[in-house]
Design a protein around this nucleic acid. Sequence first.
DNA 1: GTTAGCACTCTGTCGAGATGAGTGCTAACC
DNA 2: GGTTAGCACTCATCTCGACAGAGTGCTAAC
Lengths: 343, 343
Amino acid sequence: MLTERQRMILNAIVDDYISSAEPVGSRSISKRGDVGYSPATIRNEMADLEELGYLEQPHTSAGRIPSHKGYRYYVDHLVPWNSAESAEMGTIRAFFAEKLNATEQVIQHAAMILSNMTNYTSILLGPEVFHTSLRHFQLLPLDGNNAVAIIVTSTGQVENRTVQIPPEISLSEMEKVVNLLNSKLVNVPLYKLKSQLYSELGEEMQRHISHYEELMQVLDKALESDHEQRIYLSGATNMLTQPEFKDVDKVKTILDLLEETPTLLKMLAPASGGTGIQVRIGTENKHEAFANCSLITASYSLDGKALGSIGILGPTRMEYARVMGILGIISRDLTAMLAHWYK
Amino acid sequence: MLTERQRMILNAIVDDYISSAEPVGSRSISKRGDVGYSPATIRNEMADLEELGYLEQPHTSAGRIPSHKGYRYYVDHLVPWNSAESAEMGTIRAFFAEKLNATEQVIQHAAMILSNMTNYTSILLGPEVFHTSLRHFQLLPLDGNNAVAIIVTSTGQVENRTVQIPPEISLSEMEKVVNLLNSKLVNVPLYKLKSQLYSELGEEMQRHISHYEELMQVLDKALESDHEQRIYLSGATNMLTQPEFKDVDKVKTILDLLEETPTLLKMLAPASGGTGIQVRIGTENKHEAFANCSLITASYSLDGKALGSIGILGPTRMEYARVMGILGIISRDLTAMLAHWYK
DNA sequence: GTTAGCACTCTGTCGAGATGAGTGCTAACC
DNA sequence: GGTTAGCACTCATCTCGACAGAGTGCTAAC
């Protein structure tokens, strides 16, 4: 659709604008050297590109800035791939060489590294406990009324919550049930846990145990999925360094949204379905507050199942090439690491 | 030292400035009505107060603003106490009426409530695991190499970490040790755990167990105090709404500091020593970035031992009365709740 | 098809003047 | 002697016009 020259010029404009944040004029493109035409020629092409919707003019007599469509084209066709490979590899490799002794720590640390390297905001979705399976279940009495329920998953994550135990349930009975549960439900995926609890154990328990109803309620509560996904946010304040966000009020609405877990989940969730690196530009994001932001996401997985995702949030004027490169490497390495860990 | 009239005027100025964020002039004080003097008289007193160091003038012909010393005097002698009791009690009571089933959730929720009610930033230090004691210890093999170590404290908190198990240690041996540990070290405070491990179990284990050295290393790692205190931050973006922080760069340095756990720990730590509500104004805070901020802290406790602390960070021009009231209530209620829970 | 030239447009900046809030001082008042 | 009215003075902020600069669109020449 676009001529080779138009692509070159569009590419030059996006590149320039990404690094300068100022509308770029025909003269500065001409001077760059990689497009060997005079300002006048470039002006003509720019007018065409604007008509086609790839560029915008803040006002007459200002330079052009890329439109969302322009960014989209850039990301889809012009981004110079693999550029990050050489430059940032060192930092990333160093990170993965460090021994960290919990998945959670790795993820958290990765979030920090990412935001530091990119100077944007990184959003990491912790491993989805949902798809891992039960390794061990335990109910530990604290005092007369309360007990801690502990669930260990196949990936070594530990979930816990306190539950109230009705006084009519005896300790020995509880122990019996917990043993039963461990013998029958180990290796069952967490999301199937509750249904299997009823189908596999229901009958047997009803026969052997006196306070079936009450006990079931306790277990129900203990296995309840408060297994919400954990979100790790890092470098939120990097938003403040971007010239387009010098208006405090706009930043405030964005940062406020970033404090809301559900919003973040919604933003990252659909990405975990697709494969590879996804870019959502400006209004392609659900929230209108993110109209001037782009979100680049990737996901990491275990045994082919997507476990969680990684996102980088920045202004639409974002260093797509670099970020996409880094994100690709990190998601790949994270996947590899998990695989190696729980092989 | 100050005359009654000077106190009245200082009080009026601080009050006014707190709500307006603009230097306050003699006329507006006179018009308030609670100080029954003409602007001229008030001007004279203001000049005196400035000489004494309680007030400052941004420039000639601007109104006065309180100096740090002025705020200090206000907080120490003029703050109208108990004002919050009636107004905000409802919200707080409603919060504590809600059933939440984990200490962690309560703290996290409390942070949110606090920042919402005050429109400042709230910083909560989670319960100090350090002073609670061991309830149960467990080592759960994941695969050939790794195991999850789980520590349950007397307050029902669950800590976990993955450790590597050298292949030469057998499962049955490990079980033996864990049982020994549970029988001998239950109810020992966590901070004494390691030393007691050696003094109480050292000999016995050396006799019965073959790979003493290796096993000790595993336990050492498992019991290591990664029990860092958890920090819950809420409403950090509220900083952005304050007119004194409309300069993006200053806010950035503050928000960046708030992302650093060690900084927050340092800021809140000394407060847990003292009793009651503490106010640190401007440069009384350690970091120079917080020169324009005040931090109000309180702590909550269990069995008389301070477990953690609560802080509210805002501009020096802060609603001291309200915040101190609210903080007082919350810390009291939090303490009461913990006591009731683990009575 | 490409480029030089030129008129035109729009923004950002700078300085001058106007505005207004607030002070400090003096003198009058109770 | 404490209190207040009056007045000159100061300083920040707002407004407005002029001006420079960057960039465009168009036309005509190459």
